[in-house]
Design a protein around this nucleic acid. Sequence first.
DNA 1: GCAATTATGAACCAATTGGTACAGAATAAA
DNA 2: TTTATTCTGTACCAATTGGTTCATAATTGC
Lengths: 195, 195
Amino acid sequence: MARPPSFNRDLAVDAALKLFWRKGYAATSLSELLEVMGVARSSFYSTFSSKRELFIECLELFGNRTLEFLVNPEVSSGNLATIRAFFTKTVSEVPANRVSRGCMMVNTVLELADVDPALKTMAQTKLDDIQAEFQHLLANAQRAGELNKDHHPSQLAEALMTLNLGIRVQSRKQVDPVRLQQSIDTGLTLFKISA
Amino acid sequence: MARPPSFNRDLAVDAALKLFWRKGYAATSLSELLEVMGVARSSFYSTFSSKRELFIECLELFGNRTLEFLVNPEVSSGNLATIRAFFTKTVSEVPANRVSRGCMMVNTVLELADVDPALKTMAQTKLDDIQAEFQHLLANAQRAGELNKDHHPSQLAEALMTLNLGIRVQSRKQVDPVRLQQSIDTGLTLFKISA
DNA sequence: GCAATTATGAACCAATTGGTACAGAATAAA
DNA sequence: TTTATTCTGTACCAATTGGTTCATAATTGC
């Protein structure tokens, strides 16, 4: 009964997500978005309202995917294994073209902290969700005897998040997968999470 | 023999540095810069060439100041004490208005990684300098018996940099000086740098 | 084929961006 | 006071920004 869209909404959002992830919010221009999304200007606004609104959708999507990895791990071989896999993903995520992207939430917090507090808060909140899931996994690990009880899970989770943030910055600073993996191993070893 | 400038160059650069530090490169507009620097538009260009050139000068200044803190510590009571003081400064740096700024180099790396590779590299290089100084202090500490020799200084320095990056992101994510100091203590304790 | 509906492309918009040109103001040495 | 020099304010620039308008193209149900 009506003309069908020439683009797939999910694919378009995914393309936008990748671009925002690489270049951040401000440096991603509308024209670039339209190009990678394969969407006409007018269709863009009737479908996504605005650049900012689309960014929020992408941020949400990115955050949920990241969280999903902790909540529903692909291979479930223990709580600590899930945490290790989470960190290792950072390394395997480095694309072939070596254009590093880090973590979209971290990138957003740093870019927009003092420019768009609302967006910054969204990213921050998602990071807090992840930290809460860290805590949950660590508490389970302690209960299961996988981890000693020298520290409270909340304290460990906060420290683990600090490690995560550091690693994500490293991954955007320079992409040497080997050194990246080594930083992770050193960190996790100190936390008694890895041998 | 000529009309004197109405502004102090050093003070102007310092004001620009603060603004760049807070808002990043792109979000800092020329008009804002002129305002906080107290410089006329035409004087700006005859003195600083361009926004980008001024940013480089600010980045350099910020990096040198940070490095200086490690190389020439105000109170010298051991190598590890210098490292501890370096991290603690992150906390005391949080301004009264609670507008967090993190570390200008880290902010720059994340914002410009894929937008202005040259600027990103400059920030990255300065961070590498700091890591080298970490390594130097850690090697001295091992030699002086302040620190055990379980790990190689280069590995420890890399891990310490990861901690530093994480802390700097934390400081921009949410400014709770108490929790920030706690994250630092946990991290340094794991590194056997703090009791 | 027609009608109803929705997507598309092009033309357009005001606002802002970083940067320039230049006449005139301010100064110090003569 | 004149002169040489340098700084400053204003007016201007082209380019780009995110966003809107609207006629027309494309589709499905009838």
